[in-house]
Amino acid sequence: MASYILRRLFFLIFVLFGISVIVFGIMMSFGPERRAAAYITTPQQINAIPEIIKTYGLDDPFVIQYVRWIKEISKGNFGWSRYGAMPVWDALLTYLPITIELNLFAAPLTIILGIWLGTRAGIHKNTFIDHVTRITSVIGWSLPTFLFGLILLMVFYGLTQWFPPGVLDDKFIREIIQHPDRFTAYTGMYTVDGILNNRWDITLNALRHLVLPVMTQVVVVVAVLVRVMRSSMIEEMSKEFVLTARAKGASERTVNLLHVKKNALIPAVTVAGWLVALSLQGSIAVEIIFNRPGIGQWTAASAIALEMAPVMGMCVFLAIVYLTTNLIIDILYAVIDPRIRLE
């Protein structure tokens, strides 16, 4: 097992190399002028473009530019994010925690809820429970994220003021800015940092800000998992080992929740893994509606402004996320399914 993981991680290096070539190639498909434009901030600098091209070697051969880029990256320099007004690496460290924090709560909820609902719907196939589960999850799925988010905001913030948007109340933000010595940002997630700094009031406040975006995220994503789990349950329920289990005297409960469910979880684990990986690129709609400056917002803004460095940094980051997810899914597979051996 350990050697398998090591080998997979080693393999990851090659995949990353491939991805970096592709990403860099796509960037290079823009002309040098276009790429030089990313360095200028005022119309007056337009005349400086040829000079910028020269200084940064933007019309050098592909290989030379690629090697230069890799060299910079290996020094930790991913370039400059104009939207964030900071280096790309710092921007990642700033925006990513906001997205991770959301998914720290949304992902477990999605997985637990999705598997639970899917299991129930599968067991009670074509009954009232099943129909209700399916209809609600399809509605959740097909309702545009922004619409659902806005409705939630209207009810729980506009009408009742219970769950405000943003990440933290202004008074706390002010306090943190004014007294940076009193509050250390260990993780960049206020819920976690609050605990680490023994400031439970901040944690609670951050949680209040999380309720609506987490709800939105869960409702939008959970339907996929419900569907997969339901159909997987139904498929496993028709297998012959179910008859064997019933014929040896197992109760319906044991049959469904032990024999069937454990088998049905195998495909659901893949989907759950991918849903989590996917959500780490940040849901732009959720982040914009609830005013959470996460990685999704930042990537979108950078892409619109044709900022190469952030987009490329994001591509590399996502590649790592997906590859790691894949590895974790494969390991989980081997844990659940004895037929799979990691070799």
């Binding site: 297998k239 012959e240 080992f241 008859l243 064997t244 289990a245 019933r246 014929a247 040896k248 005297g249 197992a250 109760s251 024999h259 454990k262 088998n263 659940i336 399914d337 004895p338 037929r339």
Partner: peptide, 25 residues
């Protein structure tokens, strides 16, 4: 019936490859 099945009356199935649950010992 649950108490009876597997105790007083039991059954062997046609297809040994699918009659056993693949993920239990």
């Amino acid at each position: 019936m649950r108490d009876l099945r597997g105790d007083k009356i039991s059954m062997i199935f046609q297809e040994p490859n699918s009659a056993l649950n693949p993920i239990f010992t």
